[in-house]
Simulated assay, not measured.
Amino acid sequence: MEDTFDYRDVPGNFGHCAATACDKADTCLRHLALRHASADLAFLSILNPRRQEAMKGKCEFYLSAAPVRYAKGFMRTLNAMPAGSVRTFRYRVMAWMGRKNFYLTRQGNRLLSPDEQQYIVKAAKALGLELDDYFDGYVLAHKWR
């Protein structure tokens, strides 16, 4: 994933790490972000080196640089659902993720994390819907939190 890393995807408040001696530096998203930071950026949020030393190799801020598979939209699920179940499904998912997020994610304007994907599948199955795939598409991206 490093070959296609785009620093523009890094959130503005993301903490970077400059610990090159760390065992996990090569697989850490925080270190990867720092390596790809442009020289045009004068200031970055960086993990305090003293804090890093105090952790003695057991970093509590480590984030894996491995890409995560996010789902994009679940209109396939809604369209396959019996008409009598759509309302119940919609209300259950809205109660869990909120109205705004429901509408953003169903069309694919907001990506669904693996945990959110499991919830959608569980909610659909609870209403008797069995599909091979519940989502409209997938995207590989870094997990920034």
Rank of each mutant, 00 (worst) to 15 (best):
R50T: 15
A42T: 09
G57L: 05
A95Q: 09
N79E: 06
R87D: 07
A65V: 06
S85R: 12
A80I: 01
A54C: 07
Y70V: 07
L44I: 14
K56S: 13
R87A: 11
S85G: 02
V86A: 12
G84V: 06
R76M: 04
A71Q: 04
F43R: 11
A39R: 09
M94R: 13
R90T: 15
R51H: 10
L41F: 09
K56W: 03
K72Y: 00
Y62C: 07
M75E: 08
F43S: 09
I46R: 10
S85W: 00
P82Y: 03
A39H: 04
L47Q: 08
T88I: 13
A80G: 13
M94Q: 15
N79K: 07
M75I: 06
L41I: 15
G84Y: 01
M81K: 07
A83T: 12
K72G: 00
R51T: 15
G84A: 15
G73N: 04
L78H: 01
G73R: 02
N79Y: 01
Q52T: 12
A83F: 08
A80K: 03
P67H: 13
M55A: 14
V93K: 03
T88R: 12
M81F: 04
V86D: 02
R51F: 10
P49H: 05
Y62D: 06
Y70R: 04
R87M: 10
L47I: 14
M94E: 14
A39N: 03
T77K: 01
S85N: 11
P49E: 08
P82H: 08
L47E: 10
V68Q: 10
Q52E: 13
V86K: 15
